[in-house]
C-alpha cells in the first residue's frame, strides 16, 4: 500500500461560493470532526497538496485561478467538487458570468451535492478520493515502464479506469449526501 492514502493534504479554494460550503469544509477540520485523525492537513499551498477541494461555481474571473492551482499540484492529485454549486453551478447556474461546475475547467474525481454539503458527506468524498489517488499513484508507477509507442493508450486506459472509479465512487457519496439533505429538511 502506498502512503498517499495515509496523509492526504488538502487545499481548499473558494470559487463563487456563498460561504456556506466553505464553513462546512472548515468544520471538518474543527474538533468536532477533526480530520487530522486521518492525516489530513489543510495546506493552503498547491505544491504541497494532494486533494483539491473546490466550493462554489466557476466564473470568468476564477477559471484561470482554478486551472493554475490544479496545474501547480504535483501528481498524483484528485479534485473534489463540494456543494451543488461546484457540481454544476447550483442556484447561480443562470447567472450571466457563471460557466458552470468545476468540471468545466478541470477534471473532477468526486462530487458532493448538497446545499450546503454536510461535513460527513465531505469526509466521505475525500475518502472516496483517496481510493482514486491510490489508483492514480499505481498508474503513475506503470506509466514510465511502458514503451513510448504504447504510452498514450496506457494513459488513456488509466484515465478511463479513473473515470470508472470516479463514477463508481460518486454514487455512494451522492446517496449519502442526499440522505443528509433529506435529514436536514426533516429537521427543518
Amino acid at each position: 500500500m502506498s502512503y498517499i492514502t495515509k496523509s492526504p493534504w488538502v487545499i481548499h479554494y473558494d470559487g463563487s461560493s456563498c460561504n456556506g460550503c466553505d464553513i462546512e469544509v472548515l468544520a471538518c477540520l474543527m474538533p468536532m470532526y477533526d480530520v487530522e485523525r486521518f492525516g489530513v492537513i489543510n495546506t493552503g499551498n498547491p505544491k504541497h497538496a494532494d486533494v483539491f477541494l473546490v466550493t462554489g461555481s466557476i466564473n470568468e474571473q476564477n477559471k484561470n485561478v482554478v486551472k493554475q492551482i490544479y496545474e501547480q499540484m504535483p501528481e498524483p492529485k484528485v479534485v473534489v467538487a463540494i456543494g451543488i454549486c461546484a457540481c454544476n453551478g447550483g442556484i447561480f447556474k443562470e447567472c450571466y458570468n457563471i460557466l458552470g461546475g468545476v468540471d468545466t475547467v478541470i477534471p473532477v474525481d468526486a462530487y458532493v451535492p448538497g446545499c450546503a454539503a454536510r461535513p460527513e458527506a465531505i469526509i466521505d468524498a475525500v475518502v472516496a478520493g483517496l481510493g482514486i489517488l491510490e489508483q492514480k499513484r499505481a498508474a503513475m508507477l506503470e506509466a514510465p515502464k511502458a514503451a513510448p509507442a504504447v504510452e498514450e493508450p496506457a494513459a488513456e486506459e488509466a484515465e478511463e479506469a479513473e473515470e470508472a472509479a470516479a463514477e463508481a465512487e460518486e454514487a455512494p457519496v451522492e446517496e449519502a449526501a442526499e440522505e443528509a439533505a433529506e435529514e436536514g429538511k426533516e429537521e427543518a
Binding site: 502506498s2 502512503y3 498517499i4 495515509k6 496523509s7 493534504w9 474538533p31 477533526d34 487530522e36 485523525r37 486521518f38 492525516g39 494532494d50 504535483p74 501528481e75 498524483p76 499513484r137 503513475m140
Partner: peptide
C-alpha cells in the same frame, strides 16, 4: 480538544512526499 493524528503521522507524511511527482 482534538483527537489528533497517529504518532507515526510524520513518517507517513515524509514517505508520501517521496512518492509524489
Amino acid at each position: 480538544g482534538r483527537v489528533g493524528p497517529p504518532i507515526l503521522q510524520p513518517f507517513y507524511d515524509v514517505l508520501k512526499l517521496t512518492e509524489k511527482e
